[in-house]
Simulated assay, not measured.
Amino acid sequence: MTNAPEDQPNDRRTATNEFRTTENVPEDAEWEVVTQVPYDSSESDGLTTTIIYAVAEAEDVSPSDIKQPPLYEVVDTAALESALFGSGSSIQTSQCSTEFMYRGHRIVVQTNG
């Protein structure tokens, strides 16, 4: 995450838009793990499906209710899946993670090596 722009306060306040996307989250903000879902790239469900189901579980709603914003507008899950879990990826043999915000949730995708 990057620091808040100078015209925005750098404190623990958050702004939530209609899609529940949190902005201005300080780097030292404390996070609570709401759900944790394992992902197996050899199974038929893609990374997108796994993320949507995890968010639905965290919000206690049906996965079909997770429509806005579309996940593809927030992160390129195909590129992420290829980089972290694709065949020939050197990351597969090491531990690596990336994170992004979606619907007010901090989503962490990590490999276990």
Results as ranks from 00 to 15, higher is better:
Thr48Leu: 06
Leu80Met: 15
Phe85Ser: 03
Pro38Gln: 04
Ser42Pro: 02
Arg103Glu: 09
Gln8Arg: 15
Ile107Met: 07
Leu84Gly: 07
Val109Phe: 04
Thr14Glu: 01
Ser41Val: 10
Val75Ser: 13
Asp65Ala: 13
Ser90Cys: 03
Arg103Gln: 15
Cys96Ser: 14
Asp40Val: 05
Val55Gln: 00
Val108His: 03
Leu84Glu: 01
Gln68Glu: 11
Glu73Ser: 14
Glu57Met: 08
Ile51Phe: 01
Ala4Lys: 11
Leu47Lys: 01
Asp45Arg: 15
Ala29Gln: 15
Glu99Cys: 11
Val37Met: 11
Pro69Phe: 04
Ser97His: 13
Glu32Asn: 05
Ile52Asp: 02
Gln68Trp: 08
Pro38Gly: 06
Gly88Lys: 00
Pro70Phe: 10
Ser41Gln: 08
Thr35Asn: 09
Gly88Met: 02
Gln92Lys: 14
Ala58Asn: 05
Phe100Arg: 06
Thr21Gln: 15
Pro63Val: 12
Asp60Met: 06
Asp7Asn: 09
Arg106Lys: 15
Gln92Thr: 14
Glu6Gln: 09
Arg20Trp: 07
Pro38Glu: 08
Ala4Gln: 14
Ser90Gly: 14
Leu80Gln: 05
Arg106Trp: 06
Asn112Thr: 10
Glu99Val: 01
Glu73Met: 14
Gly113Ala: 13
Asp45Gly: 04
Trp31Gly: 08
Pro69Leu: 12
Lys67Ala: 10
Pro38Met: 05
Asp65Trp: 00
Thr48Asp: 15
Glu73Asp: 15
Glu27Thr: 12
Ala83Gln: 11
Glu99Lys: 07
Val25Tyr: 06
Arg106Phe: 04
Thr35Gly: 03
Thr2Cys: 02
Arg20Thr: 02
Arg106Leu: 15
Ser87Ile: 02
Val55Glu: 04
Ile51Arg: 04
Leu47Val: 11
Pro69Ser: 03
Thr77Arg: 14
Met1Glu: 09
Ser97Gln: 11
Thr48Arg: 11
Gln36Met: 06
Pro38His: 07
Ala54Pro: 01
Glu57His: 12
Ile51His: 00
Ser44Leu: 05
Gln68Ile: 04
Ser82Gly: 05
Val33Arg: 11
Asp40Thr: 00
Phe85Pro: 00
Ser44Val: 05
Ser44Lys: 02
Ile91Tyr: 11
Asp45Val: 12
Pro63Thr: 10
Ile107Ala: 07
Asn24Asp: 10
Thr22Glu: 12
Thr2Ser: 02
Cys96Ala: 15
Pro63Trp: 05
Leu71Tyr: 09
Thr98Ser: 11
Glu59Trp: 02
Thr35Lys: 10
Asp28Phe: 09
Ala83Trp: 11
Glu30Pro: 01
Gln110Cys: 11
Asp60Ala: 15
